[in-house]
Simulated assay, not measured.
Amino acid sequence: MTLLVFGTTGQVATELRARAQGAIFLGRDAADLGDPAGCAAAIRAHAPTAVINAAAYTAVDKAEEEEALATLVNGAAPTAMAEACADLGIPFVHISTDYVFAGDGDAPWSPDDPTGPLGAYGRSKLIGEEGVRSAGGTHAILRTSWVFSPHGANFVKTMLRLGAEREKLTIIADQIGGPTAAGRIAVACLAIAEQLTQDPDKRGTYHFSGAPDASWADFAREIFAQAGLPCVVEDIPTSAYPTPAKRPSNSRLDCAATQATFGIDRPDWKSDLTETLQILSRNKGIDR
């Protein structure tokens, strides 16, 4: 399989670079997602046998002010990529998000549940999903949530920094989801791309997140416990921590179809957290 990956520095892209030896990785200098036509041209020029899009506009709050840009990057660019892949008859794997859902209730979201994004970021990602499907090619949309890793900006690294500075932190306890290690997402994307080349009938929309589901406060407590930090977590409601973009309260994802179709189980995020902390400790918290 000759693999082309959009993205080089994001959490999942970094993990893909560590695992997909020989793959072609295109950063912003080679393929700017602000230029959808250029992204499609890059696919045609390299003529790979599969494509993974691991690049996106991910500034959730800033997207409220830059919705046009977010929609260009998260909507038009993956649509153009999917159309190019469809023309070439090759699989396209696209990473999406729990933010396409309204986040109400407490049941895990199934891939075919009605969407209803609460903000600009979610709307932009949903437009991308719709474009990928409408392209008509072999594709997999993989929705995930609460991504963490030893590199880049993420909740784990923020908690380690703040937990070392403060005796107590107030953390939101009424948003529930599945923390997911970027390395696990990378492995899932590679497996899905490989299987789609063999069986295009596996195309569709899937979910992938860590287990068990937890609140941000639960997540923080586990980080501090594993890191040996004495910082105390005080639970607060979302209303006590307003942000420009509204977050979904329920980010639980039903991942049964991913397991049944691709044989990929939900990973244990606590075990993945242990590995992440070990890497950060070895690197003294510095990104790889």
Rank of each mutant, 00 (worst) to 15 (best):
A42M: 03
S209L: 05
Q259W: 02
M1P: 14
R28T: 11
T197Q: 15
H139D: 00
L190P: 11
V51E: 09
Y57A: 08
K202R: 15
A59K: 13
A164D: 06
I286K: 13
A140P: 07
P78D: 12
C39D: 05
W109D: 08
A59R: 14
S96D: 02
A217V: 03
A182V: 03
N283Q: 14
D61V: 00
P91E: 09
N250Q: 04
I192Q: 14
F155R: 12
A257N: 02
A84T: 04
A30F: 06
I171A: 12
C85P: 11
E15I: 11
V93E: 05
A193D: 02
E15D: 13
E65T: 13
T97Y: 03
A41T: 02
A186M: 04
R288T: 00
G89T: 07
T243L: 11
P150W: 13
L16F: 05
D112H: 09
G7Q: 06
A214Y: 05
Q21R: 14
R288W: 02
A240T: 05
G263S: 09
P200N: 11
S239W: 04
P179E: 11
T115E: 12
A56G: 03
A153D: 06
K284I: 01
L69C: 00
G177F: 00
L229I: 10
N74E: 06
A214T: 13
G163N: 04
A214N: 01
V5I: 15
F25A: 10
E64D: 12
S124R: 06
S215K: 05
K246V: 02
I286Q: 14
T14K: 13
L118N: 10
P114T: 10
R203F: 02
V100F: 08
F155M: 12
V132Y: 01
G178A: 11
G27W: 04
A181Y: 09
H207E: 00
C255N: 11
Q278M: 04
I236A: 15
A107Q: 14
E67P: 02
R266A: 14
R252G: 06
H46Q: 14
A193H: 08
G116H: 12
T2R: 15
A84Q: 05
K157R: 15
A164C: 05
N283D: 07
E83F: 00
N283A: 15
A54W: 00
L277T: 02
R252C: 07
A140I: 12
R203M: 11
F148M: 09
A18G: 04
Y206N: 10
L196G: 05
F92A: 07
C255W: 01
C85T: 08
M81Y: 04
H151I: 01
G89C: 12
T258R: 12
R247H: 02
Q259A: 10
A13D: 08
K246M: 03
F219E: 12
G204W: 01
